[in-house]
Design a protein around this nucleic acid. Structure first.
Lengths: 168, 168
DNA sequence: GCCAGATAAATCCATATGGATCAATCTTTC
DNA sequence: GAAAGATTGATCCATATGGATTTATCTGGC
């Protein structure tokens, strides 16, 4: 059985909804991660962190992890890298000495604008198989999933939103 | 601005199609990866490798990486782990001495059946915000993206399907 | 005013990852 | 039949990752 037939068999299986999303993401990750790492010498979550900082000046690290669900120390390390590269600056919050308020530097805004343009082109080619109407439908449905109550926690897998076993 | 408003702003941005898919995947990965790693002591791509082997007895490692686009040595290592756990067995191909034909053991099939059941439940809760018709529509559109010509390669990012710069 | 508990971010470190390289085998050309 | 180039999978190793812990600060109860 040729590999294309195997893929069709998977996309006809009872797990096809998970499998098709997984396939899209693995494929896109392979392309996007390699590009970002090779071109900007940073992991892909550093650019998404910069994206959040440019879009919301003064944002805090804990807020970023709600926009891009990743471990807290992954965000912390991305912030350190961006700071070391001179792409952001941190200022301790007046309200709470533990918090850092994050701002992009002009250089950070330039780098982000460049990545953003390329990401827009990548988005266009990725979604090219869909008509405009289909793309809006896809987005509307994906957003319902994204805002659903069981994205970040699971009864089936016994985990609450903090990643802790819900039985604890 | 509250973090929910920030998420809405991102989902209204020019990169919203990529961002919503990214959000779904990061969220689901956080749940699924942790569950698989804690419960079965294996990385998530080991179970997807086992899934492929159970579904297609005799499959080769190179074919698996077309079903789940990952680095070749990631598949190799997953195969080694599954073999060490007694979940699969490898036999050298008659046709080509370099190839391994992969088969699940009875124990591998048992473990896969268990994971599969939990994954089905997880899939159900993840897609619960959608009606049956919406879920089929989502799948149909996602599949068009998955089968599009620009998933595994990119003009925008200058990479061909082997991950090599297309200019080379 | 003190203190226990909670919170925000940094750091640690055992383990995982992935590009590069290697070894064995196969295919094509001469 | 030999050899160069290609292919398949294993291994290497520098770097990344993420759960756990630590440090500094804040909050609420007494």
């Amino acid at each position: 059985m040729h590999v294309e037939r195997k893929l069709e068999t998977i996309f006809a299986s009872d797990l096809r909804y998970l499998m098709v999303v997984s396939f899209i993401v693995l494929g896109n990750n392979a392309v996007t991660n390699r590009f970002i790492e090779q071109t900007y010498r940073m992991p892909v979550h550093a650019w998404s962190t910069l994206f959040a900082i440019v879009m919301f000046p003064g944002i805090r690290a804990k807020e970023i992890r709600h926009l891009f669900p990743r471990p807290q120390n992954t965000i912390s390390r991305a912030v350190s890298l961006l700071d070391a590269r001179g792409l952001i600056r941190q200022e301790t919050s007046d309200a709470d000495g533990r918090e850092k308020r994050l701002h992009a530097t002009p250089r950070g805004e330039t780098v982000l604008a460049e990545i953003r343009g390329i990401s827009r082109a990548r988005q266009t080619e990725l979604f090219e198989p869909l008509t405009d109407e289909e793309r809006e439908t896809f987005f509307r449905l994906a957003r319902k999933i994204a805002e659903g109550p069981r994205l970040l926690e699971s009864v089936a897998m016994g985990l609450d939103a903090t990643g802790r076993s819900a039985a604890e």
